[in-house]
Amino acid sequence: MANFVLIPGMCHGGWCFEEVTEGLRAHGHTVHPLTLTGLSERSHLGPGAVNLETHVRDVTGVLEAENIRDAVLVGHSYGGMVITGAADRAPGHVASLVYVDAMVPGHGDSCWNLVTDQERRWYMDVVDSGDAVRPLPFFDARATPHPLASLLQPLQMAGDLAHIRRKVYVYAAGWDGPSPFTSVYERLREEPGWTAHALAGGHNLMRDAPQDLLKTLLDAVEPD
């Protein structure tokens, strides 16, 4: 059975994976849906001192404390930044990476430099303290402001993730308007070492297409 660690996107907590978590557990897998520091039920821990490195350590800390080996790290949207950093920091703990309509960064990349001008305008809509980005109006009512520093800090990597056995990209094909992830999907579906899927749903595939996403995650841990 596989060990899944689920990382949400901006402003969300581990609760956003509820249906997917239940499905994976029903198939016998171990699942850790994480809420990152400074968000949701952990919003009291930030956001002023929280950055991308904090969130990477959230994941590596769980991998080490729970002694998780051969983990499948699943990152939605901003979570792609986090799982990439965690896989680089804890190579002995991670076997597979699944990017769910997510950023796929390299060394030195930040969210700010990977997104479009539309997303940057959103990032500048900060709370009165200036250190967190407001949730968008259509987000779940449980969403909370997201630490701004985590979007600006470049990712520091020591390697190239060559040790990762399986890399999967899951593209949301049902955006209401152009998707900022289309070019990522088109590149990775042609790149050796990657498996790419397109699902009929909006950016929040955990809400829009949970059963299709669940099937894709289950397929990702099938033997080659």
Rank of each mutant, 00 (worst) to 15 (best):
M1P: 15
A2Y: 06
V5K: 00
L6F: 08
I7D: 00
G9W: 01
F17T: 06
F17P: 09
A26D: 14
H27N: 13
H32M: 14
H32T: 04
P33Y: 00
L34E: 07
T35Y: 09
L36E: 05
L36D: 03
L45G: 12
G46L: 02
V50K: 08
N51I: 09
T54G: 03
R57P: 05
V59I: 15
A65C: 02
E66V: 07
R69I: 03
D70L: 05
A71E: 11
V72H: 01
L73A: 08
S77Y: 07
G79L: 11
I83V: 14
A87Y: 03
A87V: 05
D88L: 01
R89D: 09
R89K: 13
P91G: 00
H93M: 07
V94S: 04
S96Q: 09
L97E: 01
V98K: 06
D101V: 08
L114A: 01
V115K: 13
T116E: 13
Q118E: 11
W122S: 05
W122E: 04
Y123N: 07
V126R: 12
V127F: 03
V127G: 04
D128E: 14
S129G: 12
G130V: 08
A132V: 01
V133L: 04
R134P: 11
R134I: 07
L136A: 14
L136W: 11
F138Q: 13
D140E: 10
A141D: 15
R142W: 03
A143Q: 11
T144E: 06
T144F: 02
P145R: 00
P145H: 04
H146P: 12
P147R: 03
L148N: 05
S150R: 08
S150K: 05
L152P: 11
M157P: 12
M157E: 00
A158W: 02
L161Q: 09
L161T: 06
K167N: 02
Y171A: 08
Y171S: 07
A172S: 07
A173H: 06
W175P: 06
G177A: 09
G177L: 09
P178R: 03
P180V: 10
P180G: 03
R187E: 13
P192H: 00
G193M: 00
W194Q: 06
A200F: 10
G201L: 02
H203L: 08
L205N: 06
P210Y: 04
P210T: 08
L214N: 04
K215L: 10
L218T: 12
E222I: 12
